[in-house]
Amino acid sequence: MEAVSEKVETTVTEIISRSLRIDVGKIVAQARLFVDLDAESLDLLDIRYEIENKFGIKISDNEITESVGRNLTQKEIGELLTVERVVSFVKDKINQQ
């Protein structure tokens, strides 16, 4: 189980790295996508597409951003959406299947 969890973490980090063109080594779990890694909403679409294909899961519109809380402002989402938050979202999705 731990191995699967680690694999999700590695794969998600790699996807984020590829999409944002940032070295994997520079992406820490606590990094905020919009604030620290300079992502924009389009990047999140790209990341979502790659995650869907890699893990065979279907993610609906805004599901990733809403996973940090509903009815939040863009600024609040920016503060809360970290790499580890995306990793745990993916793990939850896999477990639900």
Partner: peptide, 10 residues
Amino acid sequence: SRKLHPMTPL
């Protein structure tokens, strides 16, 4: 919705 990369329309 499954096979087209979301950047394609852009």
